[in-house]
Design a protein around this nucleic acid. Structure first.
Length: 470
RNA sequence: GGCGACGUGGCGAAGUGGGAACGCUGCGGUCUGCAAAACCGCCAUGAGCCGGUUCGAUUCCGGCCGUCGCCUCCA
């Protein structure tokens, strides 16, 4: 059995850049800075968009619990081709549409109950920084204006392709774009087009930022030129993150991020498809499964594994969540009528499981293994209460440890104590208990059926009937 | 075609050069008026396929097959 305390090791994360699991570093001020690419707000976000939000929100919780100061920044893209298209289709101003879906994004992700990033910058809020960064890149000849646009000069940045493992000379397949020097040069600034209802003044004429420059500018504004973790979906590694590196490192001359952490994709109904039928909106998933099940669903699989989304998997997760809730109910019951002394096995398991839990998260944020440790705790609690019930002090210690681990995963409310059943239900349960004691089982069973029809289960325990939501 | 990730029991999902965690499901049992919860026990002689290294490979190396993402292509 490991006797290591939770803080013996050090957190490590896999970096797409090095292809290795690397020790997490902190900045000079001891802070862990995390930047994660957020959504483009041209519609309600789907469950796939929610994965990085959940993964990195919980990563922050874990690091915070681990004693680190964390600054978590996640942007929202509110200027984009898709936004113009969606706004035209709906016949509303693009800014209005973006503001609306930004608001809905916040509403939807709030329902996950994981808090918010410390900073959530927008493109429209960083126009000056974006323009300054572009000017800097032009000054060092890594960018050039052309026909109202500004492009990044890809072949002048030596490390281009280092993140995604591509070589410039192996990508030379497209025919040169008209205004570009090199076919793979990408736009930093796009001159205004007539069908776009917004534009910003710049030294290169009216227009708007290109696809990638915003993140370089926003990350630098919030976290400085170099920070510890840059995250996002693996589908963003190329070209988005590759271009961010080129822009930021080209302008600043220092590594943009120490660790590039990418979550794998959600698979919707088998093969990933962009057809509407394979998209599940986050709000719909929340309505159907609830935030507890959804958060647990994201966490029970490693963040770098593909995650098929489907009823069977969510139902399975729902049963796991129920097992967790039941352990909390068992503690409730035990604490109401505690025993004496301490259970040695429970005490040992609490120590070992805590260690295993944090060791797992230290090892490339292995949430599935953390869950395994959590279930060790649950098992030990159930066994202890089943056998010689321990004293109240140990029961409370067990609850504190149990809730503490759950809280790291954002699931503490699973053990938030017994939900108060409506008085009507409680009355029915009491009535049933009277019938049951009188051995009038026909009536008792009829009352159980009635209670169940109202959405509650009755569980008879040595401490009397326990009513739980179904 | 290029780059990358990956192929483990009914499902999900880990660790590991030498007895294949954990969860769900299923089966048997205990408890219970019944039920639920919980507890006890059982369920992969084999880890996509084929070679190689090794005393020994699921675990390392090579090849093949397959899945997925990005790029390319196409539009």
């Amino acid at each position: 059995m490991s006797t290591a305390s939770a803080v013996d090791g050090e957190p490590r994360l896999y970096s797409t850049l090095s292809h290795r699991v690397e020790p997490l570093t902190t900045g000079p001020d001891g802070i862990v800075r995390i930047y994660v690419c957020g959504p483009t707000v041209y519609g309600p976000i789907h469950v796939g968009n929610a994965r990085p939000f959940v993964v990195f929100s919980v990563l922050k919780r874990y690091l915070t619990r681990r004693g680190y100061a964390v600054r978590f920044v996640s942007n929202v893209t509110d200027i984009n081709d898709k936004i113009y298209v969606a706004a035209q289709r709906e016949g509303v101003p693009s800014a209005e549409l973006a503001a609306r879906y930004l608001n809905e994004y916040v509403t939807d992700t709030n329902r996950l109950g994981l808090g918010r990033p410390d900073v959530e910058p927008t493109v429209t809020g960083h126009m000056a920084e974006i323009i300054a960064l572009i000017a800097r890149l032009i000054a060092v000849e890594l960018a050039y204006p052309s026909a109202g646009d500004v492009y990044f000069r890809v072949d002048r940045f030596p490390g281009y392709g280092k993140l995604s493992g591509r070589r410039l000379d192996e990508m030379l397949v497209t025919e040169p774009g008209g205004a570009k020097e090199h076919p793979l040069d990408f736009a930093l600034w796009k001159g205004h087009k007539p069908d776009e209802d917004t534009s910003w003044d710049s030294p290169w004429g009216p227009g708007r930022p290109g696809w990638h420059i915003e993140c370089s500018a926003m990350a630098q504004a919030a976290l400085g030129p170099s920070f510890e973790i840059h995250g996002g979906g693996i589908d963003l590694a190329f070209p988005h993150h590759e271009n961010e590196i080129a822009q930021s490192e080209g302008a600043n001359g220092v590594p943009m991020a120490g660790i590039w952490a990418h979550n794998e994709m959600l698979e919707l109904g088998g093969k990933m498809s962009k057809s509407e039928g394979n998209i599940v909106l986050l709000r719909d998933a929340l309505d159907r499964w609830g935030r507890d099940v959804l958060v647990a669903f994201f966490l029970r699989t490693h963040y770098r594994s593909k995650l098929p989304f489907g009823d069977a998997a969510l139902e399975d997760t729902g049963r796991q969540v129920e097992t967790i809730r039941n352990a909390a109910r068992t503690l409730d019951r035990a604490e109401s009528v505690p025993g004496e002394g301490i259970n040695r096995t429970l005490a040992d398991t609490l120590v070992a499981a805590r260690s295993d839990f944090f060791d797992a998260l230290d090892d490339d944020f292995h949430t599935p293994r953390a869950f395994a440790a959590l279930f060790e705790v649950i098992h030990a609690i159930n066994r202890a209460v089943e056998g010689g019930r321990p004293g109240v002090a140990q029961l409370q210690a067990a609850r504190a440890e149990f809730v503490g681990l759950l809280d790291v995963l954002g699931l503490a409310d699973l053990a938030a104590g017994p939900p108060v059943a409506p008085a009507e239900i409680v009355a029915l349960a009491a009535e049933r208990e009277v019938a049951r004691v009188a051995r009038d089982f026909v009536r008792a069973d009829a009352l159980r059926a009635e209670i169940e029809s109202l959405g509650y289960d009755v569980r008879d325990t040595p401490e009397g009937p326990q009513v739980t939501p179904r």
